[in-house]
């Protein structure tokens, strides 16, 4: 069976390599894409959209549909993760720590529960005291990562980056918080309800901008039609529309990344993680 698998893999790989011989060389100026499509984009994007980063202009404006459904796919991935893994049954064993003394209490009866407060704290089963070095370094680092993520989203029109990358970086900063402290610390600050609402809001912002353009009399996702809403800077309306769309993508991706991480690492129980 293993041998058969190897043969199939080699055969498929060989066919794919054979197929690539028909593709034009990398950076070939005579290839079909470079002779018809790229010329148009390179010559017209800056005057049509005022966006210096051609990749962002193509992704968020010329192929706005593509990016919109990409965001919808990311949203669906988060939804699927939630539906498959989320487990609402309460865990049987509960652990509490008496904060002043550090004594751990183990409750085996699921009905008895304590109200976590200043005296007692709900704890993980294999909880170890958090390392002060890791905690301090992450506490200093996380705000800078988040600022950088916001910069990547906001500066997507001018430099590499955009909503997707910025959202992923922002999401990883939250995941870093969950890893360096514990999962509860994250979920106390960023609740599940907040994350789900943000994931849906991101997609809604994208689609909403498209529908708004329709209401203003244009076609779906035609940002140029939004110009009357921004009377002080109508020349950059397409760039501003792209920025709005990127913000939507960033919000959706950020929350979906955290939702997926939280559900995988705690097996859907949202109690303890890495």
């Amino acid at each position: 069976m293993k041998f058969l698998g190897l043969v199939i893999v080699c055969l498929t790989g060989g066919l794919l390599l054979y197929g690539t011989m028909d593709l034009p060389n990398w950076g070939d100026p005579a290839s079909p894409a470079s002779t018809h499509l790229s010329d148009y984009y390179i010559e017209h994007i800056v005057e049509e959209t005022q966006v210096p980063n051609l990749v962002t202009a193509v992704l968020a404006d010329y192929r706005g549909y593509d990016t919109m459904f990409e965001t919808a796919v990311v949203f669906c991935a988060g939804l699927a993760c939630f539906l498959l893994l989320r487990d609402f049954r309460p865990g049987k064993d509960r652990y509490y720590r008496h904060i002043p003394t550090g004594v751990m209490l183990h409750f085996k009866n699921p009905d008895t529960r304590m109200i976590p407060g200043n005296e007692f704290e709900h704890m993980d089963k294999d909880w170890v005291p958090s390392d002060i070095i890791i905690k301090t370094v992450c506490r200093i680092l996380i705000p800078f990562i988040q600022i950088y993520a916001l910069y990547v989203v906001a500066h997507g029109d001018f430099s590499p980056g955009g909503g997707f990358q910025g959202g992923v970086i922002f999401g990883s900063s939250l995941i870093l918080m969950a890893i360096s402290y514990n999962l509860k610390t994250l979920l106390k600050r960023v609740t599940e309800k907040f994350l789900s609402m943000f994931a849906a809001t991101g997609v809604l912002i994208y689609v909403g901008l498209g529908v708004l353009a329709m209401i203003m009399g244009g076609q779906f996702l035609d940002y140029g039609m939004l110009a009357p809403l921004v009377p002080w800077d109508p020349g950059h309306i397409r760039a501003l529309g792209m920025l709005g769309v990127e913000i939507g993508v960033g919000i959706a991706v950020m929350s979906v990344m955290v939702i997926i991480y939280v559900n995988i690492v705690s097996e859907g129980r949202h109690d303890e993680g890495l």
Binding site: N53, V55, T56, V152, P160, G161, G162, F164, Q165, V168, I169, G171, S172, I175, I179, M257, I260, Y261, I264
Partner: peptide, 19 residues
Amino acid sequence: AVDVAFTEASVGAGVSTVF
């Protein structure tokens, strides 16, 4: 392809490894 490189670094090397 700097945009693709950026995505690969943040998604491929960053978040998917954590997952």
